[in-house]
Design a binder for these strands. Structure first.
Ligand code: SF4
Ligand code: SF4
Lengths: 161, 161
DNA sequence: AATATATGAGACCTTATTGATCCTATTTAC
DNA sequence: GTAAATAGGATCAATAAGGTCTCATATATT
């Protein structure tokens, strides 16, 4: 297990779509440019996201991608595991049969616990949370900032602490 | 970041040495055979462990490796990070300069927290804990089992739950 | 219907990393 | 001195990651 570039790009893509709003169609080119993702690579990534039911793909002229779920219902874990498979940390967690002593290995149990903890952490983060903060994320639509008057949207969240 | 085979072998090696006891010299061949590690590969791994001060290497006839610290003072995190470098999960955690938006990226903060949590989990596990449980670990010395009468050493720990 | 536009699906390539092996030099017990 | 054992580094094969390219397909527009 390893967080690949493809997973990082997938997260950026879903963030961009979340900011656009659910069911807002956005062209692949726009996402690629704004979120700094190689356009052709994004095409492949989008296919995986679509298979997982996270986004919908519209072909043809004026085609593109759109988020098929509410950002609040999409977790970071879902997007990550769509791209890299289920997180396991160590091979023997994914395939216990690979090491014959796994049933009674004390180290194996540590990896199991650590994996569960990591997956829980990522499951707790949804995309509505991620876009709540402002960010210098390249995809942040300046137009949105101006029309909605969110000059310092970060402050609201900082005040909570 | 990814847990490599080398890291897994390093853990097995340190477990074997911990079972032998601190400062007990053990040949590379014995460790390799008992813990199921390719002998030549173990040589390279041992060099890294030695550089980190975890084990000591004795050259020459009747040479081998020995644990230079008390198993209670060696954590799983130390051994793992000796082999694969500091755990970062995502590249931007290790090198924030790699992504120019990292200072105010909400996803970046999630990776930071998850990394800290994972590292803490591994830091909490020391090798005296790992060898306290019995295990079908190939390196478990049967002789030790017999002399100390630990027929069911796993039960002691299960009773605690 | 024709055309321009945009993505689908998968083949393909390049590079980096991993996992492992091999060979010669050096060290130490005897 | 000789045999036994590791040091240190070169080397190599296999795998995976990251990215590109091409042709097929779908749709809006005219
Ligand atoms: S020895 Fe334990 S931790 Fe290592 S691969 Fe086997 S089961 Fe997993
Ligand atoms: S966008 Fe955020 S999470 Fe992704 S690489 Fe940049 S700082 Fe890290």
């Amino acid at each position: 297990m390893r967080l690949t570039r493809a997973a990082e790009y997938a997260i950026r893509c879903v963030i961009y779509l979340s900011r656009q709003g659910q069911s807002v169609l956005t062209s692949r080119q726009e996402i690629a440019e704004q979120a700094d993702i190689p356009a052709h690579f994004l095409a492949k990534i989008a296919q995986d996201l679509a298979k997982a039911g996270l986004i919908e793909i519209r072909q043809g002229a004026r085609g593109g991608f759109l988020l098929s779920k509410n950002p609040a219902d999409v977790t970071l874990l879902e997007v990550v595991e769509t791209m890299i498979g289920e997180i396991s940390l160590n091979d023997c967690v994914a395939r216990p049969s690979g090491c014959k002593i796994s049933p009674c290995c004390s180290v194996h149990r540590v990896w199991l616990d650590a994996r569960d903890q990591l997956r829980d952490s990522l499951r707790r983060v949804s995309f509505d949370q991620l876009i709540a903060d402002a960010s210098c994320f390249p995809s942040y639509p300046k137009a949105l900032l101006e029309t909605e008057g969110l000059e310092t949207p970060l402050s609201a969240r900082n005040d909570l602490q």
